[in-house]
């Protein structure tokens, strides 16, 4: 499958590290778009169609979330999606199998998002090996600060996967530098306090924060939490490298169906 028809090498990301992929895309686009879905919500089949629609509409990167019963950093929309996926009987193995089939079918890099109990219960190093075999590029684990993540970080290093590190507006510059020392791929910058899906005010304060993040890390910056529309993308161009649309695409799917998500994403550019 071709990616936006612009780059000639098929499946180019497979041979490319995540960071190089991001930098290559940045030569063609002002900003990358990353979206998020909860594996098994509303169903595996619908997730697959959703990914197809998103990739077709020009999404550059995607987070696949393995549902967890206690998703502490997620707001109401993603929280409910987690619980509904689990009620549908989604298992961790089912999620990894799904990720494998998605990665075979679509030519963009995929990341895993979940909470630490999932890899911990599976056995952290075995889980990271399974991720690598699946073809995932990296992982975001919001409840695992590096102070608690020794086993995980070591396993990610060994398997050549990128642990995506999170910065927040309450993170000091010194701590940003510390976090950056564990980071690969890109930095996930949380735009504001709160959980996923609330409103984010695009402001001078946000510009200052992104400037601080840029100073603390040489990696590309993704900005997430609460982005909703084209104006957000326009605002972020030149300030961040990746815009993350998590909750809003899920809301669009819930209200208007999967096809409408494609329209929504096209309108963002």
């Amino acid at each position: 499958m071709m990616h936006n028809g612009k780059i000639s090498s098929d499946k180019r990301h497979e041979i490319m590290a995540l960071e190089s992929y991001i930098r290559a895309v940045l030569k063609e686009k002002d900003i990358l778009l990353m979206t998020h879905l909860i594996i098994g919500y509303p169903s595996f089949e619908e997730c697959f169609r959703l990914i197809d629609v998103m990739v077709g509409a020009g999404v550059d990167l995607m987070e696949l979330q393995i549902p967890f019963s206690e998703p502490i950093a997620d707001g109401p929309v993603i929280l409910r999606a987690n619980h509904m996926a689990l009620e549908n009987g989604v298992t961790v193995q089912g999620c990894l199998d799904f990720a494998r089939s998605v990665i075979r079918a679509f030519d963009i890099p995929f990341l895993l998002m979940t909470y630490y109990n999932i890899p911990f219960t599976y056995n952290t190093s075995a889980f990271v090996s399974a991720m690598a075999k699946t073809g995932l590029k990296g992982a975001i684990i919001p409840d695992l600060p590096p102070e608690e993540g020794h086993d995980y970080l070591e396993a990610m290093q060994k398997e050549g996967l990128d642990p995506i590190v999170i910065f927040s507006p309450t993170t000091s510059y010194e701590r940003m530098k510390y976090l950056d020392s564990f980071a690969r791929g890109f930095i996930y910058c949380v735009a504001r306090r709160g959980v996923t899906g609330g409103d984010t005010i695009l402001s001078e304060k946000l510009i200052f924060y992104l400037g601080l993040c840029r100073k603390a890390s040489n990696l590309p910056l993704a900005l997430g939490f609460g982005l909703k529309e084209k104006a957000d993308m326009v605002f972020l161009k030149g300030k961040a490298d990746i815009a993350v649309m998590g909750t809003q695409t899920i809301r669009t799917m819930e209200k208007e169906g999967i096809a409408a998500v494609g329209e929504f994403i096209r309108r963002l550019r």
């Binding site: 950093a73 409840d143 600060p145 608690e148 910065f167 309450t170 993170t171």
Partner: peptide, 19 residues
């Protein structure tokens, strides 16, 4: 980090670290 044997710790999102 508040460990009691192998139990305890502080598995918290980055946004709460400073708090």
């Amino acid at each position: 980090r508040g460990y009691y044997g192998e139990f305890g710790g502080a598995f918290i999102p980055e946004i709460l670290i400073s708090t």
